[in-house]
Design a protein around this nucleic acid. Structure first.
Lengths: 179, 179
DNA sequence: GCTTGCATGTAACCGGTTACATGATTGT
DNA sequence: ACAATCATGTAACCGGTTACATGCAAGC
């Protein structure tokens, strides 16, 4: 999903500046989407050109001015149209799994390191999601996205626990190309 | 992980043409990476320019010529160096979860459709991975990647089963912005 | 004094996707 | 006849990431 659509969706919750939207991206969407300022500001500018959002300037003292965007009727329609399209097939990409795929090329110490680092990363993400689930007011849909993430990470951790050790002890076995 | 690295890794299993590599991408790496001809051929050309792979031409009758690539010593070193770098933090992207996040904007029928379609897609991927696990000779590392995929998809299916119905019945509730 | 937060943007870069271009052979 | 498989590539496009550019205020 492109940044423009995400911005439109975010503006459905209320008016916001680019900076606000970035913060939303960090908390609410972080585990299944992400975008930096370099995507958000151009996206908002494009949306304004297309008449899908409006902007007003808010002066603040002791702070830089904020440019606050609000979604227009046309913007709502566009968002709805996008959400009603069938999403393309998911494609998961993982550099970690690429390294694991070629585990036979690494030495055992390095492999142990990669596994442990990954375990920590997943655990960190999991804790964050659990804290969102337990402390935030969420719509059913949002709760669903969070629970999907939690379930996947728990499953991933289980595989790391169950198979990590065997992987380390057996990993000298010569591989054959997959068929 | 970029296509060049994946190509180098693939060539570690033996010499191959661009076409062969594409097929490997479809079966072996499909659930955590992907690349089309438009990425593979330029990648191989670049690798050749850098001296990381060599190429020879194989004439075939009744078939177009094949350009068969083989990894060089420099290529092996480069691959090892890349695999020994720490992988960047995983970021999962899912258009499906974006739609779910904004579920309150959809009508119930459409939501049901999206959920059912996604369930089918995940089930299809899961079946494929299970068949790879049960029918292919795999190194420990490869088996690990497949089992990661299987575990995540089973977890995802469980969430879809457990929460799908409640989502559909409750989804008219007004959402608040997440905090 | 240094870092963090607030606040907005541009430009270069990189890399993947899609469409286009070609052409013979084999199977339905 | 028509689709699929084998086989290789180019060019345009799209969109995200990173680096750069600016500047003040508050807290440590």
């Amino acid at each position: 999903m492109d940044t423009k659509t995400l911005c439109l969706g975010t503006l459905c919750f209320g008016d916001a500046s680019g900076y606000d939207i970035k913060k939303m991206f960090e908390v609410a969407y972080s585990h299944f989407q992400g975008a930096g300022f370099g995507s958000i500001y151009p996206a908002l500018a494009a949306l304004e050109r297309e008449g899908l959002v409006g902007r007003r300037e808010e002066k603040q003292d002791k702070r830089p001015d904020r440019k606050v965007f609000s979604i227009t009727e046309a913007g709502r329609e566009r968002l709805l149209a996008t959400l009603n399209q069938s999403p393309p097939l998911e494609k998961y990409r993982s550099d970690f799994l690429v390294i694991m795929f070629f585990a036979h090329l690494l030495d055992t110490e390095r492999l142990r390191e990669v596994l442990e680092q990954h375990r920590q990363d997943v655990q960190t993400d999991l804790n964050e999601l659990q804290s969102i689930r337990d402390n935030c007011t969420l719509s059913e849909g949002m709760r669903f996205t969070v629970e999907c993430g939690i379930a996947c990470m728990e499953a991933r951790l289980k595989v790391l626990r169950d198979r990590g050790e065997t992987l380390l002890t057996h990993h000298s076995t010569l591989p054959e190309p997959p068929t």
